[in-house]
Write a protein that binds this DNA or RNA. Structure first.
Lengths: 341, 341
DNA sequence: CTACGTTTGTGAAACATTTCAACTGCTGCT
DNA sequence: AGCAGCAGTTGAAATGTTTCACAAACGTAG
């Protein structure tokens, strides 16, 4: 009768001597079926090794049990921590999570979104290459719950969860000036990234407010936010004439900071005595560096968790209203900027 | 007619003035439909914003377009690199990839597998907590293509892709002895992990072959393969009486090595002069450490890619035979063990 | 003008589930 | 006896695709 193929509800029903509908009830509304038949059905399921076919369920029920997160850069642990936060929330809601990686390429991002649309996922979380890209509008228009993570749209017509990057830039520079630094490098790029622009802006704002000369805040642009780019920025730093050379650097993320740290130590610099370093994100490896890195902490998991909650609200609550959640990052001081003496 | 709901093939057919079957043909066998009607159908799809419902497709076609990877430890970048390799292969085959994380907990692993079974994924790749666990047999029995990644089953009745860990342990110790070290620490655990056992075994084998005293190969067990455990091992190392204290350490993975490095540098040790360090895996952050880490490189992406190919073969080739793929890891020497003088 | 291929298009069945109106026995009430 | 109410169960419809046997249209050769 079932020759090799995997058993269906029909087979279970036959084995338990009940109808299709009853088997379905056992799975979906166990309270309406009597203890006796429920037990009988459950035994039949176990004996046959029945596994519900999720595609069929989804097709009929119209609702999928999956969320998806499209991350921006798989090589940056930061995004994995965000994903972990999402996963925890998804688990609580008994949902699966699809994780995709756009690798900062718009066409990969679009391909992933297309896939996810076909899967009819319940909601999409994304850290987009460009939060204002038209293919994101497309999603909202289709009514797919959407949350932008770690970024914001200018028009605010979908939910987002982000961190106040301007503030992050401010606290980093404030910390360095408190430590007595008067010439500071700011490292990051490309400026096409909103994050970078805002972190820089915060740094410049506070520098100006303190009445410092713009000449003493030295911007070293990078092509990407990677360890290798951090190293290369370090070399450029070393190439500056001594009286122009900063005594501290604020990096727009921890990967850059780690690269800078490595280059500096390799070149014989003492950190923080010769060069103090502040990173951004506070990934695990920041605290684990040879000289533990001072960093502007983003609540990584919390970001993911909050985003997941928003997307679920949009998916289930008809009265949902878009929200722009904001977290305030805080500085975590470690050895890479430790006060002298 | 379609009031708000997302359009189906039926709607497309109506709009294009053709039958259901023709629309399906346009999607699946475009060569059998004339250029004229194909174009008409495609236009209708574009106008309606039609997106194929993957659940329905899968239900009818019986075949899903997804692979899944259940990773062991999301905090270790190594597994993300493996996942990346899988994703690339999946992309080539036009498949989606589900990424799950068991966090080394058997019950999470089982829950994930259950989910994946319900989704009827085309194949499962897994780095299991225990490769001989019965719930893995269950999968094979159900006929789900299965590949074990970075581990092996004793009974070899499914495919696996792994690295020769014994050899890895050997080359690490050979390298250290070549550098003149005569007292070496071996750090790793728990020994319930096959990896750890084999890496240790390789180390011990070669040590014995060189005629060294077992007393001079000092095993420091750890409870997990984390940075924190690496630090704690470093403290234990520092606590040893000077004449017993090793001049080099081989860590069973890079996270331990990074922790050890941090603790050592913090305590004023010079690396490699006072303490040489070899890690395992060669994750990105090994090369990015303040003192770039010598490590036993696993071909991380390649591992994933090969595993994906095996699972696809099992899924599509009726003549498939299980294979145990083996990669030979190689030592990458960096500053953390650089030859003196 | 017929017979026969070829090409193109059709319509209904099938996939595994959920949902829901209807049905069956009961119990207890009048 | 008749009936309302209730708990438990049933059977059929519906979901959006793919597949496949078949039909229609259109040459083309005899």
């Amino acid at each position: 009768m079932l020759n090799g193929r995997t058993p269906s509800v029909k087979d279970v029903a036959a084995a338990a001597g009940v109808s299709l509908g009853t088997v379905s009830n056992v799975m979906n509304r166990p309270e309406v079926v009597s203890a006796r038949t429920r037990e009988r059905v459950e035994r039949a399921m176990a004996e046959l090794g029945f596994v519900r076919n999720e595609s069929a369920r989804q097709l009929r029920a119209g609702t999928s049990r999956t969320l998806a997160y499209v991350m921006l850069d798989g090589t940056n642990p930061f995004f994995h921590d965000v994903a972990q936060g999402i996963e925890l929330a998804a688990e609580d809601a008994d949902l699966s999570l699809f994780i995709c990686n756009s690798n900062s390429r718009p066409e990969r991002e679009e391909a992933h979104l297309d896939r996810l649309l076909q899967q009819r996922v319940q909601g999409i979380l994304i850290t987009p290459v460009n939060p204002d890209a038209p293919h994101l509008d497309e999603l909202s228009r289709r009514g797919v719950p959407l949350v932008i993570v770690d970024r914001r749209r200018v028009d605010e017509n979908c939910c987002s969860v982000a961190v106040d990057d301007v503030h992050g830039g401010r606290v980093a520079i404030e910390h360095l000036t408190e430590q007595g630094h008067t010439r500071v490098a700011v490292i990051g790029g490309p400026e096409s990234l909103g994050q970078v622009r805002e972190r820089l802006q915060g740094a410049r704002e506070v520098w100006e407010e303190l009445g410092r000369s713009a000449d003493d805040l030295i911007y070293l642009p990078t092509e990407a936010m990677t360890v290798a780019e951090g190293r290369s920025a370090g070399e450029r730093l070393a190439g500056l004439p001594a009286r122009r050379r900063p005594t501290a650097a604020f990096c727009a993320n921890d990967l850059l900071a780690l690269g800078l740290l490595q280059q500096g130590i390799g070149a014989g610099l003492r950190v923080p005595e010769d060069l103090a370093i502040v990173g951004f994100d506070d990934i695990e490896f920041a605290a684990a560096a040879a000289v533990p890195l001072t960093s502007v902490r983003q609540p990584r998991q919390e970001l993911g968790r909050a985003a997941a909650q928003l997307v679920l609200d949009e998916a289930t609550n008809p009265a949902h209203e878009h929200q722009q959640l904001f977290f305030t990052p805080e500085l975590v001081a470690r050895a890479s900027t430790r006060t002298k003496g």
